Amino acid sequence: MASQGTKRSYEQMETDGERQNATEIRASVGKMIDGIGRFYIQMCTELKLSDYEGRLIQNSLTIERMVLSAFDERRNKYLEEHPSAGKDPKKTGGPIYKRVDRKWMRELVLYDKEEIRRIWRQANNGDDATAGLTHMMIWHSNLNDTTYQRTRALVRTGMDPRMCSLMQGSTLPRRSGAAGAAVKGVGTMVMELIRMIKRGINDRNFWRGENGRKTRSAYERMCNILKGKFQTAAQRAMMDQVRESRNPGNAEIEDLIFLARSALILRGSVAHKSCLPACVYGPAVASGYDFEKEGYSLVGIDPFKLLQNSQVYSLIRPNENPAHKSQLVWMACNSAAFEDLRVLSFIRGTKVSPRGKLSTRGVQIASNENMDAMESSTLELRSRYWAIRTRSGGNTNQQRASAGQISVQPAFSVQRNLPFDKPTIMAAFTGNTEGRTSDMRAEIIRMMEGAKPEEMSFQGRGVFELSDERAANPIVPSFDMSNEGSYFFGDNAEEYDN
């Protein structure tokens, strides 16, 4: 993207840094990872977990959730003011799984939030270390993106479920800051804005008074975040219109849905970061690795190297396929839920299948599930090659597409044709070009129609051997075009429920 120079890199967003050079960025990201790792080690000690239990991804998720809940100030305040039966607002906890007599047992633990905050700050040299908290939120978000298709949420806001490739980060909490905003897809931002506008339509006082002023500035800020994701002048001009509207209503909703559809071809720039579970960072720190000293990046080879040398386990339900569970977590670790499966298959070195073909449910185990038949197995999170994460949407291309997802959002900077089903997408653009945004709409449609099938995206960008740390010898991959490109292809993934 041309304006790259004016933006802070995501590592800076990730670490609240002012302008830093590459070495400083690597050190501050490393410091953040160190903090998460030290916190995780301490929690495993508190909970008396064995090494194996500490490497269980379900335990990692519970521990991450506990610290996120302990620092969720708004919710904590709300819980104190609106006490609900049987919930102690000062405590947080969740299921911890232990191996007892050759069987997995679930144990519900409860801790004072104050105590968890103390352990977290102690692991982070006394700081609140917001960057580390956001990092864990993005890992949870990436896992949700890989596990669930947001059909219901899309339909509720009037969008087409086939636009799911635009929904990265749709389950990120509001408090995820600049680093969170960077990884949100165009569809996620559109959905947040539509929800806001709908509230304004239904509630006369939404934009009024002292609160209304705050609401208005939040609305304009979200519009600017979305505008910054678009790469064409016409899309940005249309966002200006939406932002400046005196009284946002149905016309703005129409414009936003139009823009979301246009992003299936004229893709937005959305950041991709490899955020790993805390149970990967903990053992690495415990083994003596100093992330701050060595430096770390979320968008280069580092996460690949770390996963190459990590042992992570997962509980497996009786009829689940461990290899499929591994694929789910591998995609989440690489922030690749909406990437082209052919690119992923090449990088991973084994075939990556669409969601609907995987015999696996989510990673988390519900409290009512029976533990008797639970097994555990090693997650295979290694890769054959590594590639640089991208934040450009890439230019655009036609490809055989599917009944489910009709476009992709690249996660890796790797040369390819970008699949999208042009006739299906263009069919949504018939007729409606009147109104105050008509010239911009016409211009956007013209650009979409001009998108050429034979153009290559990320020209000359390749993948790298894991021994090639400096990215000196790019390998331009070859793809098996007979395979499906979309992950949520004609899909039956479970729906995400809060």
Rank of each mutant, 00 (worst) to 15 (best):
M43D: 07
Y78N: 13
F291V: 08
Y281I: 07
S402G: 00
P89A: 01
I25L: 01
M189R: 01
R204W: 15
C279R: 14
R361F: 08
I444P: 09
R261N: 12
W207G: 13
L56P: 09
I265M: 03
A181R: 00
D160S: 02
R195C: 08
A471W: 10
M167G: 03
V408L: 05
S141L: 03
W139I: 08
V312N: 10
R267C: 12
Q58R: 13
I347H: 09
M374W: 04
W120D: 11
N370K: 03
V270T: 12
Q4A: 00
R156G: 03
N211S: 15
I25S: 01
M1F: 10
K452F: 05
A366H: 10
R317K: 04
S335P: 15
C223Q: 12
M196Y: 07
F464D: 03
T188W: 13
Q149Y: 07
E380G: 03
K184G: 01
N250W: 03
R261D: 12
K305C: 12
E454D: 15
S60H: 07
M331W: 09
R243I: 03
R391T: 04
E244S: 01
Y496L: 15
R384H: 05
E53Y: 04
E494R: 13
A271G: 02
S353N: 01
H324I: 10
M159N: 08
K90D: 05
M191T: 15
S141F: 13
R102D: 07
H82P: 01
F346Q: 04
S262A: 13
G356A: 03
V242G: 03
A336E: 07
L344F: 12
L193A: 05
M32P: 07
F206W: 11
T390V: 15
T396I: 06
R55M: 15
A85L: 00
N498W: 13
S217Q: 02
F412L: 15
G431E: 06
Q364T: 03
M136K: 14
R261F: 12
S482Y: 10
A451R: 15
A366Q: 10
D340S: 14
N224F: 06
R65Y: 10
T23N: 01
I57P: 02
I96Q: 10
L344Y: 13
G349V: 04
N202T: 02
V67R: 10
N224R: 10
E24T: 02
R106M: 08
E46F: 03
E18M: 05
F464E: 01
K452L: 00
L108Y: 10
S335D: 14
D240T: 01
Y313G: 00
A2K: 10
L381R: 15
R38G: 14
T157F: 05
M163E: 07
Y281S: 09
H272N: 08
L256A: 03
I57S: 05
V29C: 13
R213M: 03
Y289R: 04
C223L: 04
Q327K: 08
S176H: 13
A373Y: 04
I316D: 08
I201A: 00
Y385P: 10
N142C: 06
V155Q: 00
R156E: 08
G249F: 10
R361W: 10
R150I: 10
N319S: 08
M137F: 10
S297R: 08
G490T: 13
D203F: 10
S287K: 10
N397S: 05
S287W: 10
L166I: 00
P89M: 00
P318H: 03
S438I: 06
S3H: 01
V155K: 00
K7P: 11
R156A: 13
R55D: 03
S3K: 00
S467K: 00
R65T: 02
Q231E: 14
M440V: 15
G37N: 10
Q241T: 07
M191W: 10
S217E: 03
Q241A: 08
F338R: 02
T378H: 01
S141E: 06
Y78E: 12
E484D: 06
M448E: 02
